[in-house]
Design a protein around this nucleic acid. Structure first.
Lengths: 183, 183
DNA sequence: CAGTTATGTCAGTCATGTTGACATATTTTG
DNA sequence: CAAAATATGTCAACATGACTGACATAACTG
């Protein structure tokens, strides 16, 4: 194990004469670790998806539909922050190949509520377990407070404006899926 | 602050009868937080880059050249894991617009060692400071061990096979840039 | 009924990745 | 030294997943 624990920390170059405030050194380690960690994190599912002729865009859609059964198309667009045209293409493929189904909204019949099929859930869970394996391995290295630290760090990295919304989404999804399992 | 600290943790559904091992519930919170956190993290630079008609690909190249002055094209390809054709396109633009320069290798004259210009460094630093601002804000919420926790978590998320290499790269880049500043 | 909303679709463009083939200069090797 | 290997660049074609703009349909709402 290299010296991960020894902070390089940016020996604040002793601000010599005067002039402008010396502009603190960027936090290079976190910036670069995020790049490499995220690449590996999304790389796991990529291989499985490639075999099915799917890409990351399909994964994102499948993931959030699996997590939020019965969600509206508009909500999905809002979460993913893409246009309906972009969503349309991948959603159509997921529907055509039997991973997702749409169902008329019971109150508002304009809505096409989204659900994963058994096949869709199986794939979503398979991909989630791949990513979970990596996360579990990582958290085990960090001791009992690891999960909490990671969660707090990542939450804090989200725009304050949307943080609430995201945390609410994550919590709500948990309850939704529980209900779907029991129902 | 919502209940970030209360682990939803996946009430391991008490494995009823028997059959297959019940396949533990995925770690949904970290999976989704990574998605949202990373999106915001790369979103900051995107706005600045868009104004210059650059994209993320340009950012990555500029970043690593700034961090590793004098690096070989082959090393950059290896870090980014893209093809030379993909690199070529964005690198050419960065060179044409005066952000990066190439210099013949002193030992091996086939090599085109890469350096940022003053203009290139200014942009790279500006983007890094944007990301650093977000990271700083996040780490401040986590107390004194925040930086270390985050670093250890992200390191652990990287493939064990390449972790060493990445950590060495990060450490070496710090020293290289220090030398370039003093030199 | 008129206007708004939820969704879908067609067409064109852009950014960024890919393969495959080939070119050029330089170093290394038999 | 000639031949092979290496470092880099470039052309062409293609895939994915974003985008904008325009338009269509059905259903809800006032």
């Amino acid at each position: 194990m290299t010296d991960i624990t020894a902070p390089p920390e940016a020996e604040r170059e002793a601000g010599s004469g005067g002039g402008d405030p010396p502009a603190p050194e960027p936090i290079w380690d976190i910036i670069e670790l995020l790049f490499f960690a995220y690449r590996d994190f999304v790389g796991d599912p990529d291989h499985v998806l490639a075999a099915l002729r799917f890409g990351r865009a399909h994964h994102r859609v499948l993931h959030f539909v699996n997590r939020n059964p019965g969600m509206k198309v508009a909500d999905l667009l809002d979460i993913l922050r893409i246009t309906k045209q972009s969503l349309g293409r991948v959603l159509k493929q997921l529907i055509d190949e039997g991973y997702v189904v749409q169902q008329e909204g019971p109150q508002d019949r304009r809505q096409r509520l989204l659900f994963v099929t058994a096949k869709g859930e199986a794939l979503a869970m398979r991909l989630a377990r791949l990513q979970t394996a990596r996360i579990t391995r990582a958290l085990e290295e960090l001791g009992p407070t690891g999960h909490d630290s990671a969660r707090r760090f990542l939450s804090a990295m989200i725009d304050p404006r949307e943080r609430e919304r995201v945390l609410r989404l994550i919590g709500r999804s948990d309850r939704l899926r529980q209900a779907a399992v029991r129902g």
